[in-house]
């Protein structure tokens, strides 16, 4: 095929369940549109890529605190609105089940199946004390230049 594929790039900055869901729904939709899709995870958005099991990793005190306070994986993230100290996510997951909507972990799996490129920002990984072993398999590690290289010929570019 000589025709260049269209490209969608999304920066996922937010660590909110609902915002991450929106990002991943758009990413999956774009992949179905045959776009090359990149989601660049930075700051709180990195938590969507965390594995949910606790891991024994050598860390400094501050990094350990961060690791404890941040949600361990997509399923544990809170809502941007009506979180109600954790009741909100329970309610919305119940409603999602009723409407047969996909959960965030399912959307992430579907995105990987559709070859969406998931990228973790290495600079913010350092800031938040996250290490590669704590994040999902088969993701890329990069910085702003790699993101811009994808985004500069992007047809759709979002910051969430």
């Amino acid at each position: 095929m000589t025709e260049q594929k269209k490209r969608t790039t999304i920066v996922l900055f937010s660590g909110d369940y609902d915002k991450a869901m929106a990002a991943y729904i758009i990413a999956n939709g774009a992949a179905a549109y045959d776009h090359e899709v990149t989601i660049f995870h930075t700051f709180w958005g990195l938590n969507a890529l965390r594995k949910d099991e606790p891991l024994e990793i050598k860390k400094g005190f501050l990094e350990k605190m961060f690791a404890k306070m941040m949600p361990r994986g997509a399923d544990k993230m809170g809502l941007s609105n009506m979180n109600f100290a954790g009741m909100g996510p329970k309610m919305i997951k119940h409603v999602m089940k009723k409407h047969n909507a996909m959960t965030l972990p399912q959307l992430i799996e579907m995105a990987q199946e559709q070859d969406v490129k998931l990228v973790a920002c290495t600079m913010t990984m350092d800031l938040l004390g996250l290490q590669q072993e704590e994040l999902l398999e088969d993701i890329d590690y990069a910085g702003v230049a790699a993101y811009l290289a994808d985004a500069e010929d992007g047809n759709v570019n979002l910051f969430i």
Binding site: G29, A32, Y33, N100, A101, M102, M110
Partner: peptide
């Protein structure tokens, strides 16, 4: 049938 956004499009593409 019964599937919510974005699944109909994803499945159609597949």
């Amino acid at each position: 049938k019964g599937l919510a956004c974005p699944m109909p499009i994803v499945k159609t593409k597949k």
